[in-house]
Amino acid sequence: MKNIILKTAMIITIIMMSNNLNAQIAKAEIRATGLTCSMCSNAINKQLKNLPEVQEVDTDLNTNTFIVTLKEGNTINPNVFKESVEKAGFFIGSLILTTNSENVLNDKSFVLIEDKKISTNEEVQIQILDKGYVTDKEFKKLAKKYKNIETYLSNTKDVFHIKVVN
């Protein structure tokens, strides 16, 4: 009986740890495309603020950039940002996430496609390079550059090809 309880506790701990590896994003910097006025910005701002994981949204109207600060312990997926911006009627031109390097190294949904050394347990900024997370023009360039990475062109929804930007 003790062994069963111990094994169950270990399994629960492993499941909880693996769930915590999914994302744990501290901040997202979203540069949106297609905005023409402050009402456009308000539409995106409203969509982002409605997300339960969001603590705060700061907007820079000059660069059409939204800095989204997330609540601690969140398990938000980068798809949520894309869906929110598209729901407002716009597109993402770039998405940079601030997270802990452990999340990047251990989360199987992140595929590091540019060779940059990452130290363990440090804050890093990563850019999502997949279609829908960069401009169409940028994606065409990246598709040529990363044509030898089999998963890059497959456009899988829950696999994110990233590069470290800091």
Rank of each mutant, 00 (worst) to 15 (best):
D136F: 01
T156N: 09
V57K: 05
I12Y: 09
N155T: 14
S154Y: 12
K144T: 12
I30E: 05
T59G: 01
T8C: 14
L35S: 00
N148V: 05
F91Q: 14
V164G: 08
A143K: 15
S84K: 13
T98E: 11
D158V: 11
N42F: 08
I149H: 01
S119D: 12
I44N: 14
M39C: 13
T120Q: 15
G132R: 02
L6D: 15
L35C: 10
M10G: 10
A26P: 00
F139Q: 03
G89Y: 06
A143C: 13
A143R: 15
K116G: 08
Y146T: 01
G34S: 04
S94N: 09
E122S: 10
I92G: 06
M17T: 07
F160Q: 07
S101N: 00
S101R: 00
I25E: 07
Q24G: 11
Q55D: 13
I5V: 11
N79W: 05
N155M: 14
T36M: 03
Y152G: 13
L97D: 07
K49T: 11
T99E: 04
V54T: 13
M16W: 02
K131W: 01
N50A: 15
Q24P: 00
L112I: 12
T75C: 05
L61N: 07
E150N: 08
Q47I: 02
T135Q: 03
I15E: 00
N106I: 05
T135R: 02
S109E: 11
S94W: 06
T98H: 04
I12C: 10
I67F: 01
T69L: 01
V165M: 09
V124M: 03
G34I: 02
N74E: 07
L70Q: 01
F139R: 04
I4M: 12
K46S: 14
N77T: 12
K145I: 10
V104K: 03
I128G: 03
V134A: 01
V111A: 08
D136V: 03
M17S: 12
N155D: 15
S41W: 11
S154I: 14
D136M: 00
T63M: 09
F91R: 15
I4H: 08
N64T: 07
D60G: 10
V111L: 10
I30C: 04
K141H: 13
S109G: 05
T98P: 11
I12R: 03
N3R: 15
F66V: 05
E86V: 04
K141E: 14
A88L: 11
T13K: 09
F66K: 00
T63F: 12
V85R: 11
T36C: 02
N121S: 14
F110P: 07
N62H: 06
G93S: 12
P52E: 14
M10T: 13
S101V: 00
T99L: 05
T36F: 06
M39A: 14
P78H: 02
Y146V: 02
S109R: 14
V164M: 10
K71S: 00
E53L: 06
E123I: 13
N79A: 12
I118N: 13
S18N: 12
M39S: 13
F139Y: 15
L129W: 09
A9E: 10
V134F: 01
I12S: 12
Q127H: 06
I149D: 06
S119I: 04
E138Y: 00
S41G: 11
N3G: 09
K87L: 10
L97P: 10
S119P: 02
I126F: 09
